[in-house]
């Protein structure tokens, strides 16, 4: 849905670095380099980033579409 606030395994706060990570991945950088750069050293925290899909962006689209439809009626 949205990036978890903390790593499931070690409890380290990771959410604050998600936006930079996702922007840089979109920019074509290799995830390994970004994670090293952001100081995410343990593999438990690293998998939180590489395996995450931000589904909330897709769900917001449905909300916007229904709101628009409702508005037009």
């Amino acid at each position: 849905m949205i990036i978890p606030v903390r790593c499931f395994t070690c409890g380290n706060v990771i959410a604050d670095r998600w936006e930079e990570y996702s922007n840089r991945v979109k920019g074509g950088e290799h995830p390994k380099e970004i994670l090293d750069d952001l100081g995410i050293s343990r593999y438990c925290c690293r998998r939180m980033f590489i395996s995450h899909v931000d589904v909330i962006d897709d769900i917001l689209k449905y909300y916007e579409a229904t709101a628009r439809k409702f508005h037009n009626v």
Binding site: I2, I3, V5, V13, A15, D16, W18, E19, I56, D57, L60, Y63, E64, A67
Partner: peptide
């Protein structure tokens, strides 16, 4: 401690 933790995303009107 950190002001940049995303909590939720709000669409227009939410």
């Amino acid at each position: 401690v950190n002001n940049k933790i995303p909590i939720v995303k709000l669409a227009a009107g939410q």
